[in-house]
Design a protein around this nucleic acid. Structure first.
Lengths: 175, 175
DNA sequence: TCTTGATGTCAACACTTGTTGACACCCTAA
DNA sequence: TTAGGGTGTCAACAAGTGTTGACATCAAGA
């Protein structure tokens, strides 16, 4: 594997899981088995490396959903299957760990809105799109951040039922 | 105002809003108009200062709710009124900015579970308590972290309607 | 008045941070 | 073979981190 790709892999892993400011270039370089200086050479610096990890971050749909049923199905499937197919941190996790950051927060929020929330808005209208995002992120916070018990194991049928219940509830809101 | 209290005030403000690792002692000392060394003297160090800011962090109820109706009312009221009564970061914000932190994450999650989620569990059972937490934190993420449009202004009637809808949805779940 | 302990001031410490420049290596094109 | 650009290696830099020790100041009790 090329040096550039090794750096990108470990950078994404660490930046996404722990947040931009909480990860040092030496940690990434060490995990990749590579000299620190190469980061500045290949990506121009820390910010450049981080931005490179965002490439395609919000392209989570293979085929964009065209109606609400497809949207729900796609989301539940992605959430329920993600933990089994990959140990990598998810885009949702990345948003939770980085959207409060002083250095990259606005960048992240902007990317998210343009590349994802906009899709929700077009399909659901602004209010229901907001509540949709709220329950999806809330479910993730409860599961991964607060680690509340009561959230079913990610691979179980109950997990899908819980998530689907929240999503359908959010969509049942009428302004 | 005593030095100790000044430090505590600005420490809470900054730690809660930006996260433990993203705030330096010199930033806090400077905001408080006080020498850095006094932090180690008064609180033993950075961690001691942070822990001091957590005192009473989860005592958000004046009188603990004894049934679901009271729980919903209390929560909606606290959320809807908080932005008007204070510019200070909320306990929810603190959880979002610190529960992923490597140094204080487990401490925070533990405190939260013992002092708050436990109350929800006793009242609602583990599953509904988890979904309750999910929608409350999700609503906060959408509003303050992602800053999604579609969330109504905090002082409006619509804000209360949105939040109440999500909470009632979570509680309508039956395992 | 003298003493004592708490409180504040200042400088320095060892350490980590991101970044840069000098140098060596290696593969390819002339 | 010879040059040259991409790639990797190493050391150093200035800036920022939390913490500590020496010293001054001040208020209260003997």
């Amino acid at each position: 594997m090329k040096t550039r790709d090794k750096l990108l892999l470990h950078a994404r892993r660490q930046f996404w899981a722990n947040g931009y400011s909480n990860v040092s270039l030496r940690q990434i370089a060490s995990a990749a088995g590579v000299d620190v200086a190469l980061i500045s050479r290949h990506f121009g610096g820390k910010l450049g490396l981080f931005e490179a990890t965002l490439d395609g971050a919000f392209s989570i749909f293979e085929t964009p959903p065209v109606n609400e049923t497809e949207l729900i199905d796609a989301f539940v499937r992605i959430f329920a299957e993600a933990p089994r197919t990959s140990t990598e941190p998810s885009a949702v996790t990345m948003l939770l760990t980085n959207s409060y950051d002083e250095e990259v927060g606005s960048l992240i929020r902007d990317l998210y809105d343009r590349h994802f929330q906009q899709t929700l808005r077009d399909l659901l209208g602004p209010e229901r799109a907001a509540l949709f995002a709220a329950v999806v992120f809330g479910f993730s916070v409860a599961e991964k951040s607060l680690r509340v018990d009561g959230i079913a194991p990610p691979s179980s049928v109950e997990y899908r039922r819980q998530l689907e219940h929240l999503i359908r509830s959010a969509l049942s809101f009428s302004g």
